[in-house]
Design a protein around this nucleic acid. Sequence first.
DNA 1: GTAACGTATCACCCGATGATGACATCAACG
DNA 2: CGTTGATGTCATCATCGGGTGATACGTTAC
Lengths: 106, 106
Amino acid sequence: MMTSTNADVTSDVVLRVLSDPLRRRIVALLAREQLCNCHLTEATGAGQTTVSNALRVLREAGMVETEPCGRFTYYRLLPEPLAGLADELSALARSARESPDHKRPC
Amino acid sequence: MMTSTNADVTSDVVLRVLSDPLRRRIVALLAREQLCNCHLTEATGAGQTTVSNALRVLREAGMVETEPCGRFTYYRLLPEPLAGLADELSALARSARESPDHKRPC
DNA sequence: GTAACGTATCACCCGATGATGACATCAACG
DNA sequence: CGTTGATGTCATCATCGGGTGATACGTTAC
């Protein structure tokens, strides 16, 4: 089956990305300020390669932007993908709240 | 701030649950009306055991309620977990939007 | 009663994916 | 230039998690 809208595909990707605890921690840290690999490695306690892999996934999903700064590479969190997913989830919650106690008969 | 620990744990669980495409489809279907296993099996094309497993995960995560109805078991989507996660994601997006171009020095 | 149906559980297989170490790359600094 | 430190990439491995079939349980129908 094909999905009909692009928004669904994007939110699917965002959900899969956020399902990993380390990536979620990184997203939370980047929500406050721009950081580079060394900060995230120290803050999370994970190995440098592990952090770099997580950042690669975030980058390919379009959730972060990179800004090379000398030897360092700063990462910035993009708000749009998160906001889009939040809206979709809100719509689902609203639909569930507004839906009557209708049961489709078997 | 509310109890931040419990909310975080719950949202973590919700994210992990929603990372699976089948579970996500089931959530979308349940957002409109209450359904039982047979409906979901037919609608998703997945096997009965597969759907039952997905529903088990949703149940244990506190995202759906079950209502036995004779031989059937109707499932109802609970809006709160979804709304809570949506709020958290919105907060992250807002924080990323409002945060200045501050880079923590290395 | 017995049969048929819906659902849940168990045991197993297998593909996906995250962690890790070795290596390559690139920029600053002497 | 050559070294050092930060970062990305590749190959490998182990673990996790979802799909599936057999089976069990409970309920309705005959």
